[in-house]
């Protein structure tokens, strides 16, 4: 899996690269418009993280070039402007997704994986992890081949954790992903805790080999290690 990170801010570039490398992706990066154009002109990438504001030009022009050569699939626009216009224009130019800074690393991972999954498994959109199997198209989870009853939110939580397996998922990242902007008050985290408690119970009942662990003070982590 090859991913290109186009981002002018050095530290941001490092973070994106590091975070994606943890998922065992091959990550390349470009820091300005020209070098980005060079890279997309020569190589093919499975996913491109594209910043709009670049020295030397606009990310949207890179997107136009990608669209012209039929490579715009798999582009996620990463922007600090969070402007509706950029989003609309970017998506119209064939970008798959739009992520506004600041975001959580867990959210980035989930979005990248979602895109790669869609690109890879055409018509067979199923992910497996140990004895857990997730059918994204039918929103169905089974353990050891046995279907388990999850409500909409529980399914979203579980898939988010699976996309971020063995990675730290902060409470806020989870809340924003599953409940959107509806939840951002501090006392709501107990609510998330209660939701996760239910999910854990279900996973345990069905004999899941993965489990959701709490990371003290920050959030949770889905672990597939036997330890």
């Amino acid at each position: 899996m090859k991913i290109l990170v186009i981002e002018d801010e050095a530290e941001m570039r490092d973070i994106l690269t590091q975070s994606l490398e943890k998922e065992n992706f091959v990550v390349e990066s470009a820091s300005d418009f020209m070098s980005a154009m060079d890279k997309v002109g020569v190589y093919d990438y499975d996913c491109i993280l594209l910043d709009i504001n670049l020295p030397g030009g606009s990310g949207l022009d890179i997107l136009k070039e990608l669209q012209r050569t039929g490579k715009s699939e798999g582009v996620i626009i990463v922007s600090a402007r969070n402007s509706v216009d950029d989003k609309v224009e970017g998506l119209a130019l064939g970008a798959d997704d739009y992520l506004a800074k600041p975001f959580h690393t867990a959210e980035l991972t989930a979005r990248v994986k979602s895109i790669l999954r869609r690109k890879q498994f055409n018509g067979n959109n199923i992910a497996t992890l140990k004895n857990l199997s997730i059918d994204f198209d039918n929103r169905q989870v089974s353990i050891n081949g046995k279907a388990i009853e999850l409500n909409r939110k529980e399914f979203d939580i579980l898939t988010y954790f699976v996309a971020n397996k063995n990675r730290l998922v902060s409470k806020t990242a989870l809340a924003e992903h599953v409940w959107g902007d509806q939840i951002d008050e501090a006392d709501s985290y107990e609510f998330i805790y209660s939701q996760i408690k239910n999910l854990r119970k279900k996973l345990k009942t069905y004999g899941s080999e993965v489990e959701i662990q709490a990371v003290y003070g920050i959030g949770y982590k889905l672990s597939d290690s036997d330890a």
Binding site: E11, M12, Q18, R81, N82, P102, F103, H104, R167, L168
Partner: peptide, 20 residues
């Protein structure tokens, strides 16, 4: 507000990576 977005992103993400 725009200018604050990137430093905020870097800070949060760095801490998340650190915590891992």
């Amino acid at each position: 507000a725009h200018e604050l977005q990137t430093p905020l992103a870097i800070s949060i993400n760095k801490l998340e990576l650190l915590a891992e």
